Computed example of a mutant assay.
Amino acid sequence: MPHISRKGSIMPQSPIRKLVPFAEAAKKNGTKVFHLNIGQPDINTPQVALDAVKNNTIKVLSYARSEGSDEYRTKLANYYAKNDIHVNANNIVATTGGSEALLFTIGSITDPGDEIIIPEPFYANYNGFSTASGVTVVPVISKIENNFALPAIEDFEKLITSKTKAILICNPGNPTGYLYSKEEIEKLKQIVLKHDLFLIADEVYREFTYDGVKHNSIMSLDGLEQNAIMIDSVSKRYSMCGARIGCIVSKNEEFISTAIKFAQARLSPPTYALLASEAALETPQIYFDEVIEEYQDRRNTLISELQKIEGVKVANPKGAFYCVAELPVADTDKFSQWLLEDFNHNNETIMVAPASGFYSTEGEGKNQVRIAYVLNKTDLIRSVEILKIALKQYNK
């Protein structure tokens, strides 16, 4: 019998999606499942984006340009300028989602056996993308006790080797919701310049910051032009996860020309989705103001409800729409599956993402879960009530 690759064998499962069969089985048995496991917003997509697809007059659905049209990338550059990110169309490559942007980036700057340092917990697919490229993730652990702030620079320094090619951050963070300060970004700038590394920032949640705190992009830093690579996407900003349009942004010309070769090899991003994404750039500011107010209310509701449960510790996120909670159980993988397979309260249960899948350090995050506050406040309150009842029953 032919063998699959070692790479395929060690490819990690998604902690977000691996429990889906159990959720589907619960639903078939008549149990309502509150989905706290995935960052799929319930916010309406801007109508201007939907109308662009609905009302178009395309006769032939042809290939798009590999890096996205000049018009789209120019409009995107204008959007960035409003966020103190000054780039032009030639600094941007449109991709099929932020996922492909990360794959192209890793492919462009690493060879098999190279290393990327990432503060953990981190977006689970960073593990998958690195595995697919034969690259080793070197984790530097951040702690729930200090809200998952940037680890000490000394912790990064001692991990840098001749194989280190980049430091990768998510800002604001998935799964933690942590928002890096300007001082923390400056510290990362100094270390990548000192060791001649790339600094990759996944900034897909840029719009979602709370308590009046401002997002600081690596693309706004002087002196980092040859080292900074930004990953972006329309998925969360415009509640357009299904569009699958992202981009890479960098002022490093050699890097961009290399990424374009990867883009050419996969031909092009989807034409209809590019059409919708270009139209979405016309979304008025009031849309974001209302969405951010809604998410801040949801965050406040979720955190305050979780803090009422004895034995639960929760970080307070300043951005994105996730939080990490530490639960009084030994193994949240087993607990999360039990919630779907063996538990319900009045025919209702919850689905959460076990946090161990957001770590690459063996044994870390086993008592943590990621919760996405993408449900309305009534459903969030009910979800936390279910969690409280479930924990009592499980720990008996």
Rank of each mutant, 00 (worst) to 15 (best):
A77L: 06
K54P: 09
Q40M: 14
A52D: 10
N90G: 14
K59I: 14
D111T: 09
D114H: 14
K82P: 15
I92E: 01
K59S: 13
L102C: 14
T95G: 10
S62R: 08
I109D: 07
S108P: 15
I85E: 11
P41S: 09
L103M: 07
I109G: 07
K54S: 13
N83V: 08
Y72R: 00
I106L: 13
R73C: 07
I85H: 01
Y79M: 11
L102G: 14
S66A: 12
D70P: 01
Y63L: 15
T57W: 08
K59V: 14
D51W: 00
A81K: 03
A94R: 03
A77D: 04
E100R: 02
T74G: 06
I58S: 07
I109W: 00
Y63N: 15
G97F: 00
K59R: 11
T45M: 04
T74L: 04
N88V: 09
N90T: 12
T105C: 15
L102T: 11
G97V: 01
V48K: 08
N90P: 11
D70I: 10
Q40N: 13
E71D: 15
I109E: 07
K82Q: 15
A64G: 11
L103G: 14
G68F: 00
T96N: 07
D70K: 03
A101M: 02
G39I: 01
G68Y: 00
I43N: 04
G98N: 03
G113L: 12
S69G: 08
D70R: 01
G68R: 01
A94V: 05
P41L: 03
Y72W: 02
T45V: 10
E71G: 11
L50Q: 06
A52W: 00
G107N: 13
A52Q: 04
I85D: 09
T74C: 05
I106Y: 06
K82T: 15
I92T: 01
N88L: 08
S99V: 11
Y80I: 10
T105F: 02
N55L: 03
S108F: 08
V87T: 06
F104W: 15
G97P: 07
P46N: 10
F104I: 15
Y72L: 07
G68N: 07
I109V: 06
V53K: 00
L76V: 09
S108A: 15
G107D: 12
I43V: 12
N78Q: 06
P46Q: 04
L103Y: 10
N55V: 12
N44S: 10
